[in-house]
């Protein structure tokens, strides 16, 4: 038995296709991104080593900081939205008739491609023909139609809404499944002790799915930091780069302005932020888990 399952000739046969792909297309490119970040390079001609110049320029680049701020802002909003998704899942698990139907409806936006979502929401936000302004004008909430995607002060928040819309179902599903796994006896016991449904939700159910909540926080934060598609399609980072995020700024620098060295430096900074966020959240939550035991 052991001989069959630890045969040193067979193991590489099964693991190496995956390992080669993951190393070759994810990890080695990362290293190259770090390396190109030290170069001046237009993508076609010779590379010229410039040391840390790209990174120095990055620190003084106000658009980079704005993009980083927008990415972090999206991470904050996505994390706060998790509270709303958790609340929805808590309500859904309260023996709701049609819970299955609600759950399935919530997931639908996730099936739409981000390009389609961007096209759809550009029309929702259309100043004159969109449903949002038509509704706001008809109900008298505003008298002048807001320019959701053209106003530099509004645009960031306008693009956050469809992103939260897109992923709401995903997180509600995860919380719902986790809450379904909470053993009934614990809730029974709390109820016998006279706990109200609110108390049971807050002090029994939520602490019991804490690990899942932590995992979703990592997903939401890292997912936000690397978010790209919808912003690129909907605003291209505009107007006047007001809605630029790290990934869209990297894309513009590399594939629009052919400044591949600088683009690589942004890509590498993005990687460091994603890994740092993962590490910090894991670290903070591990400390929490240790304290519990």
């Amino acid at each position: 038995m052991n001989k069959v399952f630890s045969n040193p000739w067979v193991i590489p046969l099964y693991i190496s296709p995956a390992l080669v792909l993951v190393l070759g297309l994810i990890y080695i490119p990362i290293a190259f991104t770090g390396y190109y970040g030290l170069m001046e390079w237009d993508g076609i001609g010779q590379m010229r080593f410039v040391g840390l110049e790209n990174y120095r320029n990055l620190l003084g680049d106000s658009i980079f900081w704005r993009a980083a701020k927008n990415s972090v802002l999206l991470a904050v909003f996505s994390t706060l939205a998790l509270g709303g998704y958790l609340a929805t899942a808590l309500v859904l698990t309260e023996r709701i008739k049609g819970a299955d139907f609600f759950r399935k409806v919530y997931v639908l936006p996730l099936l739409l491609s981000t390009v389609a979502i961007a096209q759809l929401w550009s029309r929702v936000y259309h100043p004159r023909l969109g449903i949002l302004n038509t509704f706001l004008l008809a109900t008298g909430i505003v008298d002048r139609p807001p320019l959701w995607l053209a106003d530099p002060n509004l645009v960031v928040y306008s693009i956050f809404v469809p992103i939260l819309w897109q992923y709401a179902g995903f997180y509600i599903l995860i919380y719902f499944a986790a809450l379904k796994g909470v053993p009934n006896e614990l809730m029974e016991a709390a109820r016998i002790d006279g706990a109200s449904p609110w108390q049971i939700a807050l002090f029994v159910k939520v602490p019991l799915i804490m690990n899942v909540i932590k995992a979703t926080v990592v997903l939401a934060v890292v997912g936000s930091l690397k978010y790209f598609d919808l912003i690129y399609v909907m605003t291209g980072g505009g107007p006047n780069q007001a809605s630029e995020v790290l990934a869209s700024y990297m894309y513009r620098k590399a594939f629009r302005e052919f400044n591949f060295g600088y683009g690589s430096a942004i890509g590498f900074a993005l990687l460091l932020m994603a890994l740092a966020a993962t590490f910090v959240i894991r670290r903070l939550t591990r400390a929490g888990a240790d304290a519990e035991t």
Binding site: I15, L19, P29, A247, M250
Partner: peptide, 28 residues
Amino acid sequence: MRWRMSNWVLGLIMLGLMIPVHSTLIPL
């Protein structure tokens, strides 16, 4: 299967979930 590096390789594959696509795009 039983082999020494398996946990390490698993970790490597899983960490792939956290890597932003844009950090690999130019070299690819």
